[in-house]
Structures are given as structure tokens and as C-alpha cells.
């Protein structure tokens, strides 16, 4: 429970690096109030189509935002890009199916797919329950890291969600 306190304190202070270090100790699994970043100091960046990418060195992990999973509803099927597939930024590279609709996944960056989350293929509901952690979709080796400049950080993304342009 010490960690719980630490985490809330850290998040109140807004000290992201502390927060992430704690998060990285794998003790935060049960605390939904913060998201578990997989990589130290990595920042989650968002597209206007509601994918996120978190880059560690040359490799980016891709997923969909909490807003997107909520709008989509219960995900029942995940079609992910195959390993070693070459993707250009904005390419349609998979789809998520909920009861109400199909939604395409567009790659936030260009590069080669290095792995996909087979756990999500088996249990698509992970996208709803843990969209920033266990519900990641695929990893991609970045071709051009300058593409990241065109993405939104969390703050900008939240502003974007408040505007009417995101529908």
C-alpha cells in the first residue's frame, strides 16, 4: 500500500519521471489510476485518429487511446499487422471489431513491424481493460523518428478531444 500512496502523491505532484519509475516496478498492476508505461521516460504520443505510440530507442509500441476504446465498446476481434510488414505512416494496417462496428487501425509512424500482441488477438477485451498496457497492438521499428514531431502529446491530445474536430 506504500506504493499506492507514492503513486498518488507522485501523480498529484505531476512528477512524471518518479511516476514512471514506480510504474515500472510492476507493482502498479492493480492501480488503475495511473497507466503503466513500458519504458522509462518514454512519452506517449497520439494521432488524430486515436492511436498512440510510445517510442523506446528505435522501437515504437502502438495502441489505441482510452477515448477510442470507450467509443468503440467491447472489442471482440483484433486484426493486427503481421511481423516484418513494412508500413508507411497513415497506412491502414489492421482493424478492431466491436459489436457495433469495425474500426481500422492506422499506423502512427512508418517502419517495419517487429512484433504483434498475440495476447490481444486471443483476448481482444484487453484493449478495453488495459489500452495503454496489456492492450498494446504491435511494435514497429521506426524508419524516420522525425515523424513523431507531427504527433500530439497527452496534453495536446486531451485538448484535441475537447474540441469538436475529433469525430
Amino acid at each position: 500500500m506504500v506504493f499506492a500512496k507514492l503513486i498518488t502523491t507522485a501523480s498529484r505532484l505531476g512528477n512524471k519521471s518518479v511516476l514512471r519509475q514506480i510504474a515500472n516496478r510492476n507493482v502498479c498492476e492493480s492501480y488503475r489510476l495511473i497507466s503503466c508505461s513500458r519504458h522509462l521516460f518514454a512519452e506517449r504520443l497520439y494521432t488524430d485518429k486515436h492511436e498512440w505510440v510510445e517510442v523506446d530507442g528505435k522501437v515504437g509500441t502502438v495502441g489505441i487511446s482510452s477515448y477510442a476504446q470507450e467509443a468503440l465498446g467491447d472489442v471482440v476481434y483484433a486484426q493486427l499487422p503481421d511481423v516484418s510488414m513494412d508500413l508507411a505512416k497513415g497506412d491502414e494496417c489492421g482493424a478492431l471489431e466491436s459489436v457495433k462496428a469495425a474500426s481500422e487501425i492506422y499506423s502512427p509512424v512508418s517502419g517495419k513491424v517487429t512484433s504483434k500482441n498475440t495476447e490481444v488477438e486471443d483476448s481482444p477485451s484487453l484493449i478495453n481493460t488495459s489500452c495503454y498496457d496489456k492492450g498494446w497492438l504491435y511494435k514497429i521499428e521506426l524508419k524516420d523518428s522525425s515523424e513523431l514531431k507531427g504527433l500530439m502529446n497527452e496534453e495536446k491530445y486531451n485538448e484535441f478531444l475537447k474540441s469538436d474536430d475529433h469525430h
Binding site: K49, I64, A68, A71, H166, H167
Partner: peptide, 11 residues
């Protein structure tokens, strides 16, 4: 994700 399509089946 293309949220415009979310209600595709209906709209």
C-alpha cells in the same frame, strides 16, 4: 482508429 466509422453500421 476512425471514429467517424464507429456507428457505421447504423449511420
Amino acid at each position: 482508429m476512425l471514429c467517424r466509422r464507429l456507428l457505421g453500421g447504423l449511420v
